[in-house]
Amino acid sequence: MTAAATVTPFLEAAGIPAAELAGCEPLTGGTYNTLLRVRLRAGTRLVLKLPPPREVPALAYERDLLRGEVMFYRAAAGVGVPVPEVVAAGDGFVLMTECAGTGWHQAPPPAADRDRLRRALGELAGRLHTVTGPRFGYPSGAIPAADGWRGTFLAMLSALLDDAERYAVRLPVPAERIRALASAAAPALDEVTVPVLVHFDLWDGNVLIDGGEISALIDGERMMWGDPLAELTSLNLLGGPEDDAALLAGYAVGGGRTAFDEAAHLRMALYRCYLYLIMLIEAAPRGYGADRHAMLDARVKPALRAALDRLAP
């Protein structure tokens, strides 16, 4: 099937006649969903995102991710965070506007602009966390939510460790040791009583820069309703929030809390473990090559061990 034939039914679902299609082409860079750039005769540029077929190997939490992406964009736009506009969405697709800009990682801004932009990013994250949700966890329900954040998060972690067993992933620390450390630290999760909007994938590639400013936060598909401290994990992937004073200054301006007590540090260590485990375990169903595995061995496995050491009593 040609790209145009793939796109046409989704345009029609959005009320856009097929005759308006001027062209389309695949977008690269993603590792899970399919992305197509759609050009209309009026000059409008859209992006169509489609999930892989259900028979494609995936982690448990990755089912029906696009439901969360739509929810994220609509909620974020409501608090003034620049995101793609959802043009149409349905069972297994999202059609959205294409945002101007280039990923921060592709064209890093000049060093003189870094702190200013990190402050701006922190402020946007703070705004996201003013949005509260109906319940903790992933909107898809792929991981059944519990009554509180502790039960929900532990269920998410358990499902991920089950994925490691299912895909025969050798972890640097045995799964039972990870479960035990997480269980011991879990009382710190009880301090989280309000589910807030968390993007949870705010690495530099999902922050677009245009004209020296942040033009959009994209790829909100891995969002969850959870602890705002989880966001700080993805914002400073292999470090800690204390390592980025500019980010924290902006986060405070946006309404975020930047005083971290012992319980907060334990929670952030739990979220780092979860994120690093995702990075390690997804390599199996994705079929990553040798270069990616070398990076995981050199950087992510030591980071996971350090996060687990922080949990150890």
Results as ranks from 00 to 15, higher is better:
Leu161Phe: 09
Ala75Thr: 00
Leu95Thr: 06
Ala75Val: 04
Ala13Cys: 00
Asp227Ile: 07
Ala100Arg: 13
Thr130Gly: 13
Leu35Trp: 10
Ile281Lys: 06
Gly205His: 06
Tyr288Ala: 00
Leu238Gln: 13
Thr102Pro: 04
Leu46Ile: 09
Leu121Gln: 15
Asp227Met: 05
Pro144Ala: 03
Pro228His: 02
Leu40Ala: 01
Leu46Lys: 10
Ala230Arg: 13
Ala182Asp: 07
Arg41Gly: 13
Asp219Leu: 03
Asp219Ile: 03
Ala245Lys: 08
Arg37Lys: 14
Gly122Ile: 00
Ala182Pro: 04
Ala120Gln: 14
Phe153Ser: 01
Ala60Tyr: 00
Pro172Thr: 01
Leu161Lys: 06
Trp149Pro: 01
Pro51Ile: 00
Met71Gln: 15
Ala283Phe: 01
Leu59Met: 02
Val192Asn: 01
Ser158Thr: 15
Val94Trp: 03
Arg67Leu: 11
Ala100Met: 04
Leu124Gln: 09
Arg37Met: 15
Arg179Cys: 05
Ile218Arg: 04
Val198Met: 10
Gly226Cys: 06
Pro17Asn: 11
Ile278Asn: 11
Val47Arg: 08
Arg67Met: 02
Ala18Arg: 13
Asp243Trp: 00
Glu55Ala: 14
Glu191Gln: 14
Gly122Thr: 06
Val83Gln: 08
Val207Gly: 02
Pro108Arg: 08
Gly101Pro: 02
Arg37Asp: 01
Arg286Glu: 13
Met1Ile: 13
Leu311Phe: 12
Met1Gly: 15
His105Trp: 10
Leu59Phe: 03
Ile209Pro: 02
Ser234Lys: 12
Leu46Ala: 12
Leu304His: 05
Leu154Asp: 01
Val94Glu: 09
Ala185Ile: 05
Ala142Tyr: 00
Leu11Ile: 07
Glu55Gly: 01
Pro241Tyr: 09
His293Arg: 15
Ile178Glu: 01
Leu277Ala: 00
Ala19Pro: 02
Arg292Asp: 14
Gly141Trp: 04
Gly254Met: 02
Tyr32Trp: 07
Ile209Phe: 00
Val194Gln: 15
Pro109Gln: 06
Arg272Tyr: 04
Leu48Asn: 04
Ala306Glu: 14
Val56Tyr: 11
Glu85Thr: 15
Ala19Asn: 11
Gly103Pro: 06
Trp149Leu: 09
Leu280Thr: 07
